[in-house]
Amino acid sequence: MTPTYIRKRKRPRGSGLWPAYLLDTDAFGTWFYTPTRSLFRADDGEFCEMAQLGPGGPGEHCVQLAPHDGWWFAYFRQSGLLHVDVSTTPALVGAEWTFDDLELDPFRQPDGTIGTEDWEELAESHAAGLISDAERDAAEDAARGLERDFAAGVEPFGQVGWERLAAAVALGLPPLTEFGDRPLD
């Protein structure tokens, strides 16, 4: 399998980039897999492991989902953490999947705790003119909708994402650590 690349952009500048295996596209969107020990590169050239369990690593197996038209990008992590970046709709731009982070981070922890982090960051970015009124409203709606879907077990957040993760891990694919000539930002 040839890897693709995913770029998460921050406003007003900055990004992170990681390689991922393209798994499939289905009714939910496009699925990617990043094996444990795969690298994430920040826009300053620093590296860390993708899907870290804590600062400094280690990373863990992670399946990601770019929805067809949702304002989010989801991460299903082997530890059982479901984390979502509320964002502009992910899109394939050239040879990279790209989205702009809109600050909010809904989650469901392995113990079932559901919440959303970074409401203050959204308010600050909106006040600074980095996020428009329409984007702020869409981000808030997405976060609240995702929390409801997590609580109700609406797919792909019920079993589908976790089944995708188990199947991806079973492939035994090597970690992704090469970035080729991809620019920092």
Rank of each mutant, 00 (worst) to 15 (best):
A123H: 13
Y33D: 02
H83K: 12
L39P: 00
T25E: 14
R11P: 02
F40L: 12
L171K: 13
T2H: 13
R144W: 08
V93C: 15
L130Q: 15
V154I: 14
E121L: 10
E147H: 00
G45V: 03
E96L: 10
A91E: 10
A42F: 14
R108G: 07
L104G: 09
R41S: 06
P12Q: 07
S132D: 03
T2L: 14
P67D: 00
A170N: 08
L171H: 14
A127D: 12
F76T: 06
R164M: 09
R41T: 01
D181Y: 03
E121I: 07
S132M: 04
R77P: 01
T25V: 07
F157C: 05
R148Q: 11
E60D: 04
V160G: 10
R108A: 08
G145H: 10
G14E: 07
L146W: 00
A152V: 07
G145T: 15
A51P: 03
G172Q: 08
E163I: 09
L92V: 05
L122F: 01
V93A: 13
A170G: 03
E178A: 12
F76S: 06
L17T: 12
G45H: 01
L173R: 09
A74W: 01
D149F: 09
F99I: 08
T98F: 01
P35K: 00
L184P: 03
A138Q: 12
C62H: 00
P175Q: 03
S132H: 03
R182F: 14
D105W: 00
L173G: 11
A66R: 01
T116R: 04
L165W: 05
S87P: 00
G158S: 08
G172M: 06
D44V: 02
T116E: 04
G158A: 11
T30G: 10
Q109T: 10
L130W: 09
R148Y: 06
M50I: 09
A42Q: 13
F107W: 04
Y33N: 00
L130E: 15
R11H: 12
A139P: 05
S125W: 08
L176G: 09
E46D: 15
D141R: 15
E163N: 13
L81Q: 07
D185R: 10
A95M: 15
E147N: 11
D137M: 09
E96H: 12
G54E: 15
L146D: 04
V84T: 08
H61Y: 02
S79P: 04
V63L: 04
P90C: 06
L92I: 13
L23D: 05
E178D: 14
R9C: 15
I114E: 11
T4P: 04
L104D: 10
I6A: 08
L122C: 02
P3E: 04
E140D: 14
E120Q: 12
D118F: 02
A143N: 01
Y33R: 02
W97C: 06
E135H: 05
D133R: 14
T30F: 01
A139C: 05
D141Q: 14
D44E: 04
L122R: 01
G45Y: 01
Q159V: 13
T30L: 00
E103L: 09
E103A: 15
Y21I: 06
G172H: 05
G112A: 08
S125L: 10
A51M: 03
G180P: 02
P106I: 00
